[in-house]
Every structure is written in structure tokens, then in C-alpha cells.
Write a protein that binds this DNA or RNA. Structure first.
Lengths: 222, 222
DNA sequence: ACCCATACCGACCGACCGGTATGGAGTGCG
DNA sequence: CGCACTCCATACCGGTCGGTCGGTATGGGT
């Protein structure tokens, strides 16, 4: 066989993938054990990459943190954008669909369904402003998607109390992040699912959803 | 002056205070920078104690974490038990009073009003089950206080939907913990205050509070 | 006066931390 | 072919990590 080494042996990770592999490894490891507990060496091992590659692509561990926070948005945004709930014509149905989708993907161990940026920002908000800001951006960007549907829902179904789409969108993220914390503490997705259920009742009240319609939105069976 | 050394020179920390000083230091440092980022040496420095004292009182850093989680309950429970909202005769008023009290103490930087156990459990839920369990206990113990008032409120003011006192109490903690996360990300107490406001509206709806009475419970002014 | 448990001290340990220095393999381009 | 440049590999650095250990100080009991 002639020595055609156009590409590495195909089993080895392709050249140029180190950066992406490190970001993916960061998401996995930090979700399980936190930001500080995740070392550069460990990240390299998980990504199948050497330390030289790490510091070639990132000036510091902090720089990786910023990039990983932005990458979290890049990987989750398509997940939600491609979810089936967007086909609902009524924006309020899309909002409920989002919450049901959130419940549907809350499967497995907490480290598999909780949020990278929520975990990271709790450890870094006082020690690294670049990471904090990147996490804040990612949370806001995610909330902004929901905010559009909420704004349209407010338009179409005038709410019982004065609320803003931005405020409701952030409240939704607050409930979800809190659900992550309690779920980690209990080692179960139950607190998150319960919280989503309560949140749906709140929105049903706000938007005056008739009871028969409300239950079709996937009230969690016991 | 005769050498009466009944107690150390009064400027030095009294003998026997090392343990308490370490627990207090743990609360302060971990709230600011997280569990893993807080080293044993740093704890000793903050507490004005040597490493020998640390490992005399705690078998390991993990053991300190468990003790600090339990101590968090011991220090916060009296704070809430002594709060003025308990004097309300109507249990529902006490529930709203609790939430208003929560808002009132959300002052200063996030590290000054956020939760030690919420921060700690996020980092340790997968790596230390003793710490995770201790944090879970502390959260549940705090929720249990609220659960009693919520149970009485359900009794007195039959809710519009079927809810349980335990579920509502945990949902309250979920919202608060989520408010902490968003507040850290934004560097402001605003997300927490907004979340508490939304939660109060949900409860007002559930318990069918008349609108005029609801607003007297301290709706946050803009 | 003596004993002993408790409280505390601080030097020290091997492992590991984030980060650096240097060198070399692959690649596009003239 | 040669050269510059990107992408990585490896050895190594000073510092810090959680934890250990031999020792001292103190105070109460007898």
C-alpha cells in the first residue's frame, strides 16, 4: 500500500478539531463537577488533546470559559430552534410547547440536563468578569427567543396583570435555573418538572387559558 | 499586674473558637468564589486559624463542607424565625411576609445575599454525596418551615387548583435559588426581586387574594 | 503535683495546578 | 523546492493543593 498520508489514520482525531473537542469536553466536565474542579489537564485528556493544543487555541483557562459559554449558546440554540413546538400557530402554544420541551429533555442524571452557563457563572461571577458577562449574554440570548413568542402572546391574549415579555422570559429562566439547583440537590429531575408545572399554571392564569385547553398542553401525569 | 492568664490576652481569638470561625469563613468565602476555589489554607487565613486547627476539628475538607451546610441551617433558621412576619394571624399573610422578607434581605452584592448550600451543591452533587445530602437536608429543612404556613393557608383559603403545601414550598425555594443564579449573572438583585414578585402573583392567583389586599403585601414599586 | 484529654501549631509531603518554552510535522504559496 | 505559518507535542516551571505528623500549650480532675 502506497504511503498516502493525505489525512491522519482516520482513527486519530482530525487535525483542527482540537478547539471544538475542548469546548465539548468543557461542557461535559463542568456540568458534572463545576468550573474550578475541572482542570486544564483533565480537559485535555477528555478531549484527547495535549496541553500544547489547549494553549495554542486559548490564551488561558479563563479564555476557554468565555468561549465555552458562547459555544453553549451555539449548541443549544439549534436544539431549541429545531424543536417541534415552533409549528404552533398561536404564540402562546409555542410558549407552552417550549416548557413541555424543557420537561421532555430533562432526562437522565442532573449533569446530563443541567446548564453549563448556570453552573459556571455561580463560581465565577465575582472572580472573572469576562466569564460572568459571557454567561449572562448566553442566558439573555436564550431568553430573547422566548421573549418574542411571549410578546406575541401578550398581544394576542391580553394578560390579566400587567407583565412584560422580557420580564416573563427572564422569570422562566429563573424557574428553570432554580429547578436545576434543586434537582442537583435531590439527584432527580422531579424538582425541575414540578417547577415547570407550576410555571405553566402561572402562565395559564395570566393568559386566561380555559381549563380544558390548558390540560392539553401536557400537564404532567402522576 | 499579676499574671492572671485565666483567658488569653483578649485580643487573640479565644481558645475553642476555631471551629466556629472556620464555619463562618467557609460561608463567606464559598459564597463569593465557590466551593472548589476555596482552599483549606484560605479558610484558615480568613478564620485566623492554623492548618493544624483545621484538621483537628475536621477530618477533611469534605467534612467541613458537611458541617458548614448544617451550620448554614443553624444560622439562617433563627434569622427567619425572628423575622416580624410571623406575627400575622393569617397563615397566608405569613407566606407573603416571608417572600417580602426575602426581598428585603436581598441587599448588597450577590455574595452577600445568596445561598451557601445552593452554591455548594451545584459543585459537589456528583463528587461528594455527603455534602450533597447535607445541602439537600438544609434546603428541605428551610422549606419545611414555609410548608407549615402554606398548609394552614391551603386549609383556610382553599386554592383554585390542586396543590400541596410541600410542592409549593419547594417551588418557592426553586424560584429563590434561580433568582440567585440570575442575580449572580447580572450582578444585581433585580432578577431575584422580579422573581419574587412573579411568585407572589402566582400565589395571589392560587389563593384568590382580592386585588386590593394583594397590593398591600408590598408589591415592588418601580 | 501529676496526668491526660483536648486544642492547637507549623513544617513538611507528593500530587497537581495553570502556564511556558521549544521543537517539529503538516500545508498553502510563490 | 523553499519558506512561512498554523497546529500541535512534550518537557518543564514555580506555586498551591489537600492532607500528615511530631510536637506544644492549656485546663480540669484527682
Amino acid at each position: 500500500m502506497p504511503p498516502r498520508v493525505k489525512k491522519p489514520p482516520a482513527t486519530a482525531p482530525a487535525r483542527g478539531d482540537a478547539r471544538a473537542a475542548l469546548l465539548t469536553a468543557a461542557h461535559a466536565l463542568v456540568r458534572r463537577q463545576g468550573w474550578t474542579a475541572t482542570s486544564v489537564d483533565q480537559l485535555c485528556r477528555e478531549a484527547g488533546v495535549t496541553k500544547g493544543a489547549f494553549f495554542h487555541h486559548f490564551a488561558s483557562k479563563e479564555a476557554l470559559g468565555v468561549a465555552a459559554a458562547r459555544h453553549w449558546d451555539a449548541v443549544t440554540a439549534p436544539l431549541f430552534a429545531g424543536a417541534p413546538y415552533h409549528r404552533h400557530e398561536d404564540p402562546l402554544d409555542r410558549v407552552f410547547g417550549y416548557l413541555d420541551f424543557r420537561a421532555a429533555i430533562a432526562q437522565g442524571a442532573p449533569e446530563d440536563f443541567t446548564c453549563f452557563v448556570g453552573t459556571t457563572v455561580q463560581e465565577t461571577f465575582a472572580s472573572s468578569d469576562p466569564i460572568r458577562a459571557a454567561c449572562d449574554d448566553t442566558i439573555r440570548a436564550h431568553a430573547a427567543h422566548l421573549e418574542r413568542d411571549l410578546g406575541a402572546a401578550i398581544e394576542r391574549h391580553p394578560p390579566r396583570l400587567e407583565v412584560t415579555a422580557a420580564g416573563l422570559a427572564l422569570y422562566t429562566q429563573t424557574v428553570i435555573q432554580g429547578g436545576f439547583v434543586l434537582s442537583k440537590a435531590q439527584g432527580s429531575n422531579a424538582p425541575l418538572l414540578d417547577a415547570l408545572s407550576h410555571l405553566k399554571r402561572y402562565l395559564s392564569f395570566l393568559f386566561q387559558v380555559p381549563h380544558d385547553k390548558e390540560t392539553t398542553h401536557g400537564e404532567r401525569p402522576r
